[in-house]
């Protein structure tokens, strides 16, 4: 591929937005905020990806899916770069993705529920309940409680609705 025919970076981003998260396929890797940069170094396309959780087993699958998508679009000279800093935060999950998560049955992250909320977390612990209400993605009730800080994937916690009685995943805030 000659330099003149390299695809525009905006087009690269469009292509990346077609790559779904392998664990939560309703959202794309761009909506999750894990693509930190796409640029050319000479004729090489460099895509910087940040992991959500350090040990997330999806990380290498995501790299592979990005690679496969870009190859399919005709990109030949490609390098993936792992970027650790700044560390990924759920603040980077887009608005559109939050709505899709909710429709998929996963309560989206709520600011202020991260563990490093310090005082808020301590107050919540002493009062025996959460400081912020996480809405049930099924019935919308705010009358919910945390069952466990962890869930089916590293990025989720287990909650339950005290009105419709359904358990659900909460995309935990970090």
């Amino acid at each position: 591929m000659t330099t003149a025919s390299l695809p525009e970076i905006a087009e690269i981003w469009d292509w990346l937005s077609e790559v779904p998260d392998p664990e939560i396929p309703v959202v794309s890797v761009t909506e999750l905020g894990i693509i930190r940069d796409a640029r050319y170094e000479g004729g090489t396309l460099v895509v910087a990806v940040t992991p959500t959780y350090s040990g997330c087993p999806a990380t290498s699958v995501i790299d592979m899916m990005i690679e496969a998508k870009l190859r399919e679009k005709g990109v030949e000279d490609l390098r993936l770069e792992r970027r650790l800093s700044p560390p990924w935060t759920t603040d980077w999950v887009s608005e559109a993705a939050r709505e899709k998560l909710s429709a998929f049955g996963i309560a989206p992250p709520i600011d202020g529920t991260a563990s490093d909320g310090g005082m808020a977390a301590k107050a919540a612990r002493l009062s025996g309940k959460s400081n912020l209400s996480v809405a049930c993605p099924r019935c919308g009730s705010a009358n919910t409680e945390r069952i466990s800080q962890f869930g089916s994937t590293p990025c989720k916690a287990s909650w339950r609705c005290k009105d419709c009685l359904e358990p659900f995943d909460y995309f935990k805030c970090i």
């Binding site: 290498s60 490609l78 390098r79 993936l80």
Partner: peptide
């Protein structure tokens, strides 16, 4: 590609 990504910082 995966291994390179894991290494490159």
């Amino acid at each position: 590609v995966r291994d390179k990504a894991a290494m490159a910082s």
